[in-house]
Amino acid sequence: MADHQTELLKTALYDLHVELGAKMVPFAGYDMPVQYPLGVKGEHLHTRAKAGLFDVSHMGQVRLNGEHRVAELEKLVPGDIAILKPGRTRYSAFTNDDGTILDDLMITNAGDSLFLVINAACKDDDIVHMRANLDNGVELIEIDDRALMALQGPDAARVLARFAPSVADMKFMSFAEIDIAGIACFVTRSGYTGEDGYEISVPNERAEELARKLLAEEEVEAIGLGARDSLRLEAGLCLYGNDIDTTTTPVEGDLNWIINKRRREEGGFKGSDIILDQLANGADRKRVGIKPEGKAPAREHTPVLNSDGEEIGEITSGGFGPTVDGPIAMGYVAIEFAAPGTKVDLMVRGKARPAEIVELPFAPHRYYRG
């Protein structure tokens, strides 16, 4: 957010959040709902059991036009965008010359253009970065007249299909332009909870209308940022600014899978020499799942110790996992301690508490792959 903007921005759904009794908090320059009267734990469990509706309009939506858009974007991300078929979406990251991560993003081949969704806190910097580096006639259009909402959970497809039957046939990480209840939307079958669901880009002036229609369905509850965070943590998904940032490479972040075969062979993206060297020879540390023993959660910046009491890493995201019914965390440890089953200690409030390195995710992904 620009320095001179002190007033918090509001999404198209702000009035609805207030009407629904949301507790509003500042987040990435916006006034956003952190929870509703149901509470974070209730909202979390409802999303896992039925369907939750999230306002994610604070995120950035961008279109890239131009004949060379794919090749130009591939200079900035390590993913193979050239093989992304029309109507398909891919998770990737902007890297810099140091091989570290400027932001993570979703890239969709919308046929005649690329449609990107970028993080709220990074979007201004991301747009400056793209404008500075995309050449060959690529046109960048900021989409500021559309809201973005996510419908997530095992009942998401059933609910959305009542308004647009064709969404039921979409597979995970696919995209379509669909009328939902007569409203022209961009829809991807994706999300950031580990559950099946959709992200829906809708014109600002019709966003509240669509949200009210979805919330009127008995399976759907409004869900705030608090449960969005606990859901993504259980799903083992990174939060930019916590688990990945300009101090972490994709290899350290255990995101090797975003670097496709051709890009590993050819490089040609920012920081590729460093990243490809780590792919070949290993990194010194790695993002892992960490399960504290007992009931006390370990928050971000909690030191991770080995059996000799030496610091070997730190927690980057931690809290209570309602589905797991206990504390969960992610963080970085020195590579020799990264194997699942390794016993570690967490320094919580001056006391070493036992924990174990575990496989991610904590709650199984339930994406619809057809």
Rank of each mutant, 00 (worst) to 15 (best):
V348L: 08
K10E: 14
M330H: 02
E218P: 12
S307G: 11
A184Y: 12
N109G: 02
P364Q: 11
N306I: 06
K75R: 14
R264G: 06
Q61H: 11
D15A: 14
A132H: 08
V159C: 01
R48Y: 07
I81T: 00
G111I: 00
C185D: 04
L279C: 05
T247V: 13
F362P: 00
R228T: 01
I107S: 01
E359F: 02
D229G: 04
D135F: 15
V128E: 15
A352L: 00
V288Y: 00
R69S: 08
S317C: 07
D155C: 11
Y367I: 06
T11P: 09
A51M: 04
N204Q: 05
L225I: 09
Q152W: 09
M173L: 15
A280N: 11
G313S: 11
R90I: 15
G29C: 04
G137L: 08
S230V: 12
E19Q: 13
E314G: 12
T246C: 09
L134F: 01
K10P: 03
D3H: 15
Y367L: 11
T100E: 02
S230C: 06
R158A: 10
A157G: 15
F320Y: 15
E311S: 05
G350L: 06
E217C: 07
T247I: 12
V77N: 01
S92H: 06
P33G: 09
T47Y: 10
E359S: 12
L9Y: 05
T316K: 12
D277S: 10
P361C: 10
R90T: 12
R228E: 08
F362M: 05
A329N: 07
K295L: 12
A49V: 00
I274G: 00
R299D: 10
F362Y: 07
M24Q: 06
I180D: 07
A227P: 06
D308T: 12
H46Y: 03
F320S: 13
K261S: 10
E67V: 13
G370Q: 13
A227G: 06
K10V: 07
D104M: 05
E217H: 11
P327Q: 07
V34F: 13
A181W: 15
M149R: 03
H365C: 01
E300R: 13
E19S: 13
P303W: 09
E218V: 04
L38W: 03
G319P: 10
V348N: 02
R158S: 09
C185Y: 06
L276R: 11
D104R: 02
E199A: 07
P292M: 09
D308E: 15
N109V: 02
G253E: 05
C122S: 15
E199N: 10
G370H: 14
V251Q: 05
L9C: 02
E7Y: 01
E218N: 04
A176D: 15
S57F: 04
R48H: 09
L134Q: 01
A157I: 14
G29Y: 02
G253I: 08
K343F: 02
S307A: 14
K261V: 12
E314L: 14
I258Y: 10
P297A: 04
L45T: 09
E43D: 05
I143C: 05
F186S: 13
G319C: 11
E67F: 04
E293I: 05
E208I: 04
N109R: 01
D277I: 00
F362I: 01
V117D: 00
K270I: 01
W257H: 03
K351D: 03
L210T: 11
D277K: 08
E199G: 01
D245S: 15
